[in-house]
Computed example of a mutant assay.
Amino acid sequence: MRNWLIQLRKEKQLTQQQVSKAAHIDRAYYAQIESGTRNPSMAVACQIASVLLINPSFFFSEILSEPFELALANSPIVVAHCDVNLRYTWMFNPHPDFDINQVLGKRDDELDVNDGVIALMNLKQTVIDTGQTVRERISFPLSEGLIYYEVFGQPLFNENKEIIGAATASTQLLH
């Protein structure tokens, strides 16, 4: 079951019929994709992703990321992508305080508001506005106290070399 896909569709107040029509696919096929009984082709994943404003690779993250996941399992590293509106389109290995199913499609300030969130959003906005990489130390108040991260942000480009968002890699620091 792709609960993240169902939740994202519902948050955008769309029906399966509306998504399938906008993505130019059969509703029954879309329902099978949501239920996890069928995997979309890359072309169909791109069509659905453009409707829901997410990265199409999210449909294949389980397949594509196995070596990545093994290398980073239980590590203090969080990797994420956001669009130009700072809404998460992909995330890997979030802090335990965050549920990946709750993060997709949201901005940081919709999840929490504190100095760390504001600094992170400013970092991502700078990356998008300037097209330059940015590196900054940011602290976040989390369940186990104030946690420091070294955050590296870089622009995401489409095939036309236009900035479509930002990618961040955040490493938890020992303090």
Rank of each mutant, 00 (worst) to 15 (best):
W4I: 06
L5Q: 01
I6G: 01
R9H: 03
K10W: 00
K12G: 07
L14W: 05
Q16P: 10
Q18C: 10
Q18A: 15
V19I: 15
K21A: 12
K21N: 09
A23E: 01
I25R: 05
I33H: 10
I33G: 05
G36M: 15
R38L: 08
N39Q: 11
N39V: 06
N39W: 08
N39C: 08
M42I: 15
A49G: 06
L52I: 09
L52R: 07
L52S: 04
I54H: 06
S57L: 15
F60M: 10
S61N: 09
I63C: 10
P67V: 08
F68S: 12
A71G: 13
N74Q: 11
P76A: 15
I77G: 00
V78R: 14
V78G: 02
V78P: 05
V79C: 13
A80L: 13
A80W: 15
C82K: 07
T89E: 02
W90V: 05
W90I: 06
M91E: 02
F92M: 08
H95M: 02
P96R: 07
D97L: 07
F98A: 03
F98H: 03
D99Y: 07
D99K: 12
I100Q: 05
L104T: 01
G105T: 11
R107N: 00
D109G: 04
L111I: 14
N114T: 08
N114K: 08
V117D: 02
V117Y: 09
A119L: 14
L120I: 06
M121W: 12
N122E: 08
N122R: 13
L123V: 07
Q125H: 12
Q125C: 12
I128N: 02
D129Y: 11
V134P: 04
R135A: 10
R135C: 10
E136W: 10
F140T: 09
L142M: 14
S143N: 06
G145L: 10
G145N: 04
L146P: 08
I147D: 04
V151L: 02
V151S: 00
F152V: 13
G153A: 04
L156I: 15
N160D: 03
N160E: 10
G165P: 01
A166C: 07
A169C: 13
T171V: 15
T171S: 04
Q172V: 09
